[in-house]
């Protein structure tokens, strides 16, 4: 690991630890190994969004060429969001790609991701299915996102209707997450979801 990358990460680590966001518990960062190449981040779902009340864990990999190339970040916590893959957690955010600037920091990355949760960009989607639902059936999108936040990120909103539909598919021998993913994709239409699974 290049010297500059390590010294930068060490410094940024301290910066995040000292920042006021950590005091408010809205962002968090921890080390995974001693080489400073892999970190774990955590962001709180922003208020007044379907992600409110959830804690989202992020995998942060620091490249050799950091800070001249961006860190590789992905969601470990499953999330229903147009710019984040519901399957892999891959993120579509300009500052993690072309618009990365060497003077940006892990703190700015975490805050930008929080901002992304608050303001989705469905016209530039990472997950086309979610984006379509966001644009076409916004109320369903809100419910799905809140449901996912509840299940995977510890959010407060429980949807018994969703749970019972998932249970129906589970009874047919489908894995719980697969059932949830298919139902979410099919706008919670149980018939279509079944068709999708068994055709």
């Amino acid at each position: 690991m290049a010297n500059m990358a390590v010294s930068r990460i060490k410094r940024e680590f301290k910066e995040v630890m000292r920042s006021e966001e950590i005091v408010q518990c809205s962002i968090k960062i921890e080390l995974i190994n001693d080489s400073w190449t892999e970190l774990r981040g955590e962001i709180a779902g922003p208020p007044d969004t379907p992600y409110e009340g959830g804690k989202f864990v992020l995998e942060i990999k620091v490249p050799e060429t950091y800070p001249f190339n961006p860190p590789k970040v992905r969601f470990i916590t499953k999330i229903w969001h147009p710019n984040i893959s519901s399957v892999t957690g891959a993120i579509c955010l300009d500052i993690l790609k072309d618009n990365w600037a060497a003077a940006m920091t892990l703190r700015t990355v975490l805050l930008s991701l929080q901002a992304l949760l608050a303001a989705a960009e469905p016209d530039d989607p990472q997950d086309a299915v979610v984006a379509y639902q966001y644009k076409d059936k916004y109320q369903l999108f809100l419910m799905t996102a809140k449901h996912w936040t509840n299940i995977y990120a510890g959010g407060p909103h429980k949807f018994t209707e969703c749970d019972s539909k998932i249970q129906r598919l589970k009874d047919m021998g489908i894995d719980e997450h697969d059932a949830r993913a298919v139902l979410s994709k099919e706008n919670w239409d149980l018939e279509k979801a079944t068709e999708n699974l068994f055709s």
Partner: peptide, 19 residues
């Protein structure tokens, strides 16, 4: 060096965010 390595030349920009 890292930019040139990625094939970027005339489009290299300032290192500051949003600049």
């Amino acid at each position: 060096d890292t930019q040139i390595f990625q094939g970027i030349s005339t489009q290299i920009g300032c290192m500051a965010p949003m600049c």
